[in-house]
């Protein structure tokens, strides 16, 4: 989808949040010179094309009790990454799963998944259950729990 200058104005206008008022899209329209209906149509089409992944709440998960957050990194043979990545991505407790480049020799891991939990022991149990159920014992992995959060501002692109 090719974005117009007006799309970018709209995107910039709402990137920090929607107005908390009864007709939020009308309020945005007033600021960018569009009608309520035009704003609704543009936002709907931005969402349809995937520029907007979703609208709604983005939580601060630490504040909501999700403090045991593990990034599990795996050193998977290249020809198995797709199969293992797909499998990990299907686990209900896995919230994100990506392939990333190795940075040898210091960093041999090429598959990353996140497990966000409320208790560290439960998260560790989940991980060993996954390893066992899917025969991943032979794949070296490490579990990096998050410690202090030093910044959570959200991405700004404009």
């Amino acid at each position: 989808m090719v974005l117009s200058e007006q799309d970018y104005r709209l995107i910039a206008e709402i990137q920090d949040g929607l107005p908390l008022s009864s007709r939020p899209y009308a309020a945005i329209g007033e600021r960018v010179g569009l009608s309520e209906q035009q704003v609704i149509e543009r936002i709907a089409s931005l969402q349809m094309s995937g520029v907007i992944k979703r609208m709604g709440i983005i939580v601060r998960h630490h504040e909501l009790g999700y403090t045991a957050n593990a990034m599990v990194v795996w050193d998977v043979p290249d020809d198995q990454v797709d199969a293992v990545g797909k499998k990990l991505g299907e686990q209900p407790c896995v919230t994100l799963c990506y392939q990333r480049p190795r940075r040898l020799p210091a960093w041999p891991y090429n598959l990353f998944c996140m497990i966000h939990g409320q208790e560290r022991n439960r998260v560790l149990e989940h991980i060993s259950a996954i390893v066992k159920a899917h025969g991943l014992d032979h794949i070296p992995h490490q579990i990096l729990f998050s410690g202090k959060r030093y910044k959570q501002r959200g991405a700004r692109y404009l």
Partner: peptide, 11 residues
Amino acid sequence: KQLSRFGPMYH
């Protein structure tokens, strides 16, 4: 501060 934001999540 229980919510980080209320609005769009961009790709």
